[in-house]
């Protein structure tokens, strides 16, 4: 029902989430990703959420936990491609995801992880 892919690009794990995610899918992703961060010694995790039409509190917490675990494993996490209607809804829900890096596009996110913000 949901398609999640993880690919390694240099030392960044690029994660794409699409479709309907059950809570179990979200937890499985968190476990899988955290193991991958450790085993690949990735420096960054880039999570592309442009394929998600909602982010509720459960998924938001999962994203937050992924970032926290990755940080302990010395990797930064950046969430990219959030749809505007999802951002509006998250704010109203009370979820501002503090501490979670964000970028608008995958390219911007890669730049952010590589420490070179692209000029706007």
């Amino acid at each position: 029902m949901s398609r999640t892919s993880v690919i390694e690009l240099q030392d960044v794990l690029l994660v794409t989430i699409q479709g309907e995610l059950t809570d179990r899918d979200a937890m499985a992703l968190q476990e899988e990703l955290t193991s991958s961060v450790a085993s690949s010694s990735a420096r960054g995790v880039l999570i592309d959420v442009s394929g998600l039409d909602i982010v509720d509190s459960f998924l938001a917490r999962t994203l937050h936990d992924i970032a926290a675990a990755s940080a302990l494993l010395a990797a930064d996490t950046v969430v990219v491609g959030m749809r505007p209607e999802v951002a509006i809804t998250l704010v109203e829900l009370g979820l501002t995801l503090p501490g979670l890096g964000t970028a608008l596009t995958v390219a911007d996110g890669m730049d952010k992880l590589n420490g070179s913000a692209r000029p706007r």
Binding site: D23, D53, I54, V55, D56, S57, F58, R83, E85, V86, I88, T89, E92, L93
Partner: peptide, 17 residues
């Protein structure tokens, strides 16, 4: 609208859980 749908579906997800 898309924003209204998103709010509604998100609220539904929270309450169903």
């Amino acid at each position: 609208s898309l924003v209204e749908q998103t709010k509604l579906v998100t609220a539904a997800s929270e309450l169903a859980r």
